[in-house]
Amino acid sequence: MFIEIKGIKRNFGEGESRVEVLKGIDLGIEKGEFCVLLGPSGSGKTTLLNILGGIDSADEGYIAIDGEKMADMNEKALTRYRRKHLGYVFQMYNLIPNLNIKENIETGAYLSENPLDVDELLKVLGLYEHRHKLPNQLSGGQQQRTAIGRAIVKNPDILLCDEPTGALDYKTSKEILKLIEEVNQKYGNTVVMVTHNDAIKHMADRVVKLHDGTIRENYKNDKKVSATELDW
């Protein structure tokens, strides 16, 4: 198993305001799998993604990536881990406002010993002609493409996406999902995506449904559909 999640628990707050967000999650994800984490607000999906991304820590349990346990890593090792293995895409694009599109993607390339060709990637993302523009000159969809480009340019083993279409309209959302699908197929990264959108489960290899901090469903799709065929 490429990603092994074992007995993960996470609480927030103290005393009366203590909330058990994750109540013991066990999950395995294969290399190259497209995994979707579904669930209502407060179900713990983003918390699980953050622990997986090494930007939050579990109170109990462990996560192992390719056999290496994250709990054994200190702050520096976690940063190295993120630098080497992870790409992150958020709902808000979080682009650097005074760097142009190409430069924003280059901030990701800088982190890798062996990054993808930036110009090539810009073409794949459909942003080549906009590469000299600043983020605020682009639409939301184009900005999210840039954020995806920044995450994948270092060719990470794992691409973590937290509601990447949450702030986008229907048409643009489908374009972004298509892009992530293509990236997954072309570069073979493992994709873990958190979403509210139930329709997205159809394009995933694995679907994990969370509810109140526990896994309610965890199954593999026998037959995937392409992002272009999704409807909601």
Binding site: R82, R83, L86, Y88, I96, T107
Partner: peptide, 16 residues
């Protein structure tokens, strides 16, 4: 002002 960008960069592997 740039908290989100910094968070993203740190999450992507930029060191402190």
């Amino acid at each position: 002002k740039e908290a989100l960008v910094i968070g993203t960069l740190r999450a992507s592997g930029y060191t402190k």
